[in-house]
Write a protein that binds this DNA or RNA. Sequence first.
DNA 1: TGATTACTTAGCCATATGGCTAACCAACTT
DNA 2: AAGTTGGTTAGCCATATGGCTAAGTAATCA
Lengths: 98, 98
Amino acid sequence: MADPTRRAVIETLLKGPASVSDLHAPHAMAMPSFLKHIRKLEDAGLVTSQKTGRTRMIHIEAAPMRAAEDWLSRQRKLWEGRLDRLQTLAEALERKPQ
Amino acid sequence: MADPTRRAVIETLLKGPASVSDLHAPHAMAMPSFLKHIRKLEDAGLVTSQKTGRTRMIHIEAAPMRAAEDWLSRQRKLWEGRLDRLQTLAEALERKPQ
DNA sequence: TGATTACTTAGCCATATGGCTAACCAACTT
DNA sequence: AAGTTGGTTAGCCATATGGCTAAGTAATCA
């Protein structure tokens, strides 16, 4: 979910639930194109929606957001480990330059 | 650079520089396909290479690795902020259920 | 009822991604 | 010199992604 449109939608939804057209407004893109992004967010479970009358309200889902943050945390630790190993490697190469 | 092949290559290179064929060996993929991944890593600056005779050695680059970790750090903080706002939002919605 | 609004469906298009084979060159090995 | 090895180039292919238009449906407004 690295897509800028999708990220912006998430960001907007943090201010509260919104209708599809509200969410659509700031994006210079045709509705059907935009709807695809909403569908992907729904498929990913980041967002839920319910239709009342002819408007569909989109709500952000807390659980997967927390999951996303956990994932980032874990990734960061992984990279920390990598940097450590890189450090070790650099030192090893320095000791035997050839 | 979310591709699993590329990630595995980086992981291997943390053990030290390696030739293209060494890196290729564990991946069930034709050489030209694999080479494309190496090229992308080079284009992204994560890796450098030099050819001696007919073999090309690939080296990992420290600076962009550090940059990657910084980026992850920043992202994590962003998501922390988002979770905070989500919390606030949830509380607000609870107070006025309709 | 007729028009407008808010989506929705269907289908087309360009580009990107990750894979393949075939053929090639250059550098060793025998 | 002939063969093998390590890498490279070129070009094809399937699928995915992110965009579009055109045409629909259903709800609400005038």
